[in-house]
Amino acid sequence: MTRVNEFKQPIGEPVENWQGAQYPTKTMINGQYCRLEPISVAAHSQALFDALSQAEDDRDWTYLLSGPFGDLAEYQTYLARLETLNDPLHYAIIDLSTQQAVGSIALMRIDAQQGVIEIGGVTYSSQLKRTRLATEAISLLLQYTLGELGYRRVEWKCNAHNHPSRAAALRLGFTYEGLFRQAMVVRGHNRDTTWFSIIDSDFPALQKAYQQWLARDNFDQQGQQRQKLGELIENQRKALLIAE
Rank of each mutant, 00 (worst) to 15 (best):
L133A: 12
L133R: 10
A134R: 01
A134K: 00
T135W: 03
T135Y: 05
T135L: 01
A137R: 02
A137V: 01
I138V: 15
I138F: 15
I138E: 06
S139V: 03
S139E: 09
L140G: 02
L140R: 01
L140V: 02
L141S: 05
L141P: 06
L141W: 10
L141H: 08
L141G: 03
L141F: 08
L141M: 12
L142S: 03
L142P: 00
Q143L: 08
Q143G: 10
Y144V: 01
Y144D: 03
T145S: 14
T145Q: 00
T145D: 00
T145K: 01
T145F: 02
L146I: 09
L146N: 04
G147F: 00
G147N: 05
L149S: 05
G150T: 07
G150A: 03
G150K: 08
G150S: 06
Y151K: 10
R152P: 02
R152D: 00
R153F: 01
R153Q: 08
V154T: 15
E155V: 13
E155I: 10
E155G: 11
E155P: 08
W156P: 08
W156T: 06
K157H: 13
C158Y: 04
C158P: 09
C158I: 09
N159Y: 13
N159T: 05
A160V: 11
H161A: 12
N162K: 10
N162V: 01
N162Q: 09
N162G: 06
H163A: 13
H163V: 14
P164E: 04
P164W: 01
P164L: 00
P164V: 03
P164M: 03
S165E: 11
S165Q: 12
S165P: 14
S165V: 01
A167N: 15
A168I: 04
A168T: 12
A168D: 02
A169V: 05
A169C: 08
L170C: 11
L170V: 15
R171P: 12
R171V: 02
L172N: 12
L172I: 05
L172S: 06
G173F: 00
F174K: 10
F174M: 10
F174N: 02
E177I: 06
E177G: 07
E177Y: 04
E177T: 06
G178Q: 11
G178E: 10
F180S: 11
F180G: 06
F180P: 02
F180Q: 12
R181N: 11
R181F: 01
R181C: 11
R181M: 12
Q182W: 05
Q182V: 04
A183D: 13
M184L: 13
V185F: 04
V185D: 01
V185Q: 12
V185W: 10
V186A: 10
V186M: 13
R187M: 07
R187E: 09
R187I: 07
G188M: 13
G188Q: 09
G188A: 11
G188V: 13
G188H: 10
H189T: 07
H189A: 12
H189S: 07
N190G: 04
N190C: 03
N190L: 05
N190F: 01
R191L: 04
R191A: 03
D192H: 15
D192N: 15
D192C: 12
D192Y: 14
D192M: 13
T193Q: 08
T193K: 08
F196S: 13
F196A: 05
F196D: 04
S197T: 11
S197Q: 09
I198W: 09
I198A: 04
I199H: 05
I199R: 07
I199E: 06
D200R: 09
